[in-house]
């Protein structure tokens, strides 16, 4: 169970982005979080990915409340949650090849020897060819790079996957391919999914249930 219980989060000294948000993702479940742009969904995704420390509220992973934040959550908890961001260009280290990007989590956790085998396993799963794996981010398209970013999130076989607007920049075919890759992984491992986005049609089709984000500041969009 990945559980956010009345969580408040924000950035230093500014008003919180959201207050008292609660959300639960059960193992094997896929939850879609729907909301307009700029309402704090991405911050919530970062909290759920254990990358952002909430200011208040409880964050519970598999029954253990995460209290031991120092600068980040403990490594073994962090790596249990994989995350994919909206913009592959900024989410990939421009100096690494795609293969290195995918292998990075294994190297970072001292399991270098498994890296080649895992990359060889993941690349076809997300639809990357051997030729693409030797290239650097600026030599591939957004869609190809996002495939690598998804593979990286799956490298350590996380029990939860957070997709923050994973397909917002992508065309229909790549979107469908990436969603299929996520679903294949979930069928194989029984991982839970939190898909954050604004595309109602997509999230309704993709997820078991969708949650509407309503607690957002009123948009001053209407003239």
């Amino acid at each position: 169970m990945l559980e956010l219980d009345t969580v408040t989060a924000g950035y230093e000294r500014r008003a919180p982005v959201f207050r008292g948000a609660s959300l639960t993702v059960a193992p094997g479940e896929s939850v879609g979080l729907l909301g307009p742009s700029g309402c704090g969904k991405s911050t919530l995704a970062r909290v759920a990915a254990l990358l952002h420390r909430p200011d208040a509220g409880r964050l519970v992973l598999d029954g253990t409340e995460i209290r031991a934040w120092r600068h980040r959550a403990p490594r073994e908890l962090r790596t249990a949650v994989g995350v994919v961001f909206q913009q592959p260009r900024t989410a990939a280290d421009p100096r690494l090849t795609l293969a290195e990007i995918i292998a990075e989590p294994l190297r970072a956790t001292g399991r270098r020897t498994e890296a080649d085998a895992r990359v060889a396993e993941l690349a076809p799963a997300v639809g990357l060819t051997a030729d693409l794996l030797t290239r650097r981010p600026h030599e591939v398209s957004d869609g190809q790079l996002q495939r690598a970013c998804l593979a990286r999130a799956l490298t350590l076989r996380p029990r939860w996957l957070i997709c923050d607007e994973m397909t917002a920049m992508l065309d229909a075919s790549t979107t469908a391919a990436l969603v299929a890759a996520v679903e294949a992984y979930r069928t194989e491992t029984g991982a839970g999914l939190l898909a954050v986005g604004h595309d109602r049609v997509l999230l309704n089709r993709w997820c078991d249930r969708t949650v509407e984000w309503k607690d957002c500041l009123p948009a001053e969009d209407t003239p």
Binding site: G127, S141, G143, Q144, D171, S173, T175, V179, D199, V201
Partner: peptide, 19 residues
């Protein structure tokens, strides 16, 4: 046709392979 079929409100199946 493949592009349209990839839409989530249609078949939601990707065009196989990559460009």
């Amino acid at each position: 046709r493949g592009l349209l079929d990839a839409l989530p409100d249609r078949a939601f199946t990707p065009v196989p392979g990559m460009p």
